[in-house]
């Protein structure tokens, strides 16, 4: 039952994306079949997407998949890794690259219970040194290592 509901949720999500694209796209100039405007292609696509997503939603209800352990959502690593990437984005914008590496690695290690902070710190230091050597020294990229504010 759990997998059916997740399939349905994803189908609904896709239908939602299609519907939004349809509504927004219909404000663009459609043009004609001969001289297509910027709205023509996206509107056709989003209409097709909505139809396909509806069909998939129906098939998710009608045709039940057998319960499958690999289709269960692992919340812990999912949230840890996604927040690690988001944390990197926020930290690099305000504090620079080195703090961002500590944040992304620190949050990533929350994916597993009992990882401990020591390996996380060691990994962060190694990554910082490696990235500094590769990007700043070897490739000569101007990346902000440290900064405060925007």
């Amino acid at each position: 039952m759990k997998t059916v509901s997740l399939r349905l949720v994803v189908a609904a999500l896709l239908a939602g994306i299609g519907l939004t694209a349809l509504v927004v796209g219909s404000t663009y100039d459609l043009g004609s079949a001969r001289r297509m405007g910027p709205g023509y292609f996206p509107v056709v696509l989003s209409a097709v997407l909505v139809l396909l997503a509806l069909a998939e939603g129906v098939s998710a209800i009608v045709k039940r998949d057998p319960e499958n352990p690999s289709s269960k959502v692992d919340w812990r690593p999912l949230l840890a890794i996604l927040s690690a990437v988001a944390g990197f984005a926020i930290t690099i914008a305000f504090f620079g690259l080195i703090p961002a590496f500590f944040v992304v690695i620190g949050l990533s290690t929350l994916s597993e219970r009992g990882y401990g902070w020591k390996p996380a710190v060691i990994l962060s230091i190694i990554t910082c040194i490696g990235a500094w050597l590769l990007f700043s020294q070897l490739l000569g990229m101007a990346l902000p290592l440290f900064r405060l504010g925007l």
């Binding site: 890794i81 690690a84 990437v85 990197f88 984005a89 690099i92 690259l97 961002a100 590496f101 992304v104 690695i105 990533s108 290690t109 994916s111 996380a120 990994l123 190694i126 990554t127 990235a131 990007f135 990346l143």
Partner: peptide, 10 residues
Amino acid sequence: YPVVIALICI
């Protein structure tokens, strides 16, 4: 994997 994620970000 933490290093892979960090490399993806950078």
